[in-house]
């Protein structure tokens, strides 16, 4: 067991964990933060994407011990006092989700994309989201939602 201290969505947690514990299982099974789901074994689907110290990572491919001393933001940490972020609103307004399983990862990946490219082209949006699979939408409305946010003057994704 290894001792870790991780700040997740603003709260600091101290835990003893097995080194092999994946960050996604730490979030889901230990902290009960089930907003971030798991979709594959090979880091292809991106459903488990969270932010680790401000950049998007696939939490199925990071060990919980590696997050020791770090800050993690999940989809559950985005809205404050019921106030959705611009991306969350855009996903809703553009019908960028159907079953919603890929949505947490897709939103976290889109945040990352907009940080790096605040005003992307449609093609850049598609490539920026290439690590996140969606089986419902055909991606078109997801691309629209991200572009909507990028067109807003100040990016507060």
């Amino acid at each position: 067991m290894t001792h870790i201290s991780v700040k997740v969505d603003g709260t600091t947690y101290e835990d003893e964990v097995e080194p092999r514990l994946l960050l996604i299982h730490y979030l889901r099974d230990r902290l009960g933060l089930t907003g971030t789901p798991i979709g594959c074994d090979t880091s292809n689907c991106g459903a488990c994407t969270v932010e680790l110290d401000g950049t998007a990572v696939k939490s199925c491919t990071v060990l919980a011990v590696q997050a020791d001393g770090s800050e993690v933001t999940t989809v559950q940490g985005l809205a404050h006092d019921g106030e959705l972020t611009a991306l969350q609103r855009a996903f809703h307004e553009r019908h960028a989700l159907q079953c919603g399983y890929c949505t947490p990862g897709m939103i976290m990946a889109a945040r990352d994309l907009l940080r790096e490219h605040p005003h992307p082209t449609p093609d850049e949006v598609r490539h920026g989201l290439e690590g996140n699979l969606c089986r419902c939408t055909g991606y078109q409305n997801i691309v629209r939602a991200v572009l909507d946010v990028s067109e807003e003057e100040e990016v507060t994704a």
């Binding site: 089930t34 969350q88 996903f91 809703h92 939103i107």
Partner: peptide
């Protein structure tokens, strides 16, 4: 109409079967 279903899905307040404990 934007969907009523979205509110919990975009905020991670989901209830997938594997979330149940």
């Amino acid at each position: 109409r934007p969907r009523k279903e979205d509110a919990h899905l975009i905020t991670g307040q989901t209830n997938w079967t594997d979330n149940i404990s």
